[in-house]
């Protein structure tokens, strides 16, 4: 079936099987920032924005996305560069596999929650698992990014 949607502001018509999930669709179309880390909607590395909301692309049927706006880090270059300036300074990146999904969740946090506390930040990104960093450097970086760009 054909699905009309927008990926990173560019309208596209995409061929999809009924059972195709957005993660597979995006990777097949070379949006390789979107990673696969688990089979069970439980790691967060496949997070993209759908109409601005962070969403696990592994668990959304592509066929349900008619007229939706999909955003991956490829479409948020300016904001990612601002975020990375702090993230890199804190040495929070390590293996990087979770970073695109985390970055999109953080961008959404910035756009939806005013003056979040550290606990609000942690709660918002709780499902973006990271096995490398120990997390506290991430939260420091996010706080600085929010303070300096909000």
């Amino acid at each position: 079936m054909k699905v009309n949607l927008t990926i990173n502001k560019r309208p596209r018509t995409i061929d999809a099987e009924p059972g195709d999930y957005l993660l597979d669709t995006l990777r097949r179309h070379n949006f390789l920032s979107v990673k696969r880390g688990c089979d069970a909607a439980s790691c967060g590395v496949c997070t993209v924005l759908i109409d601005g909301k962070p969403t696990l692309s592994c668990s959304v049927l592509t066929a349900r996305l008619e007229n939706k706006e999909i955003t991956t880090v490829e479409g948020e270059r300016d904001e990612i560069e601002k975020f990375y300036a702090h993230f890199g300074d804190e040495g929070a990146d390590q293996c990087g596999f979770c970073n695109p999904g985390l970055a999109l969740t953080v961008i959404s946090l910035k756009r939806t929650i005013q003056n979040p506390s550290d606990d609000d930040i942690r709660e918002y990104i709780v499902a973006n698992l990271c096995r490398c960093s120990g997390y506290v450097a991430q939260v420091r970086a996010i706080r600085r990014y929010l303070e300096e760009t909000s």
């Binding site: 909607a41 499902a127 973006n128």
Partner: peptide
């Protein structure tokens, strides 16, 4: 609800 997995799942 806020303790059901993460935002990315609760948006689905």
């Amino acid at each position: 609800l806020r303790q059901v997995m993460g935002v990315g799942l609760r948006n689905i």
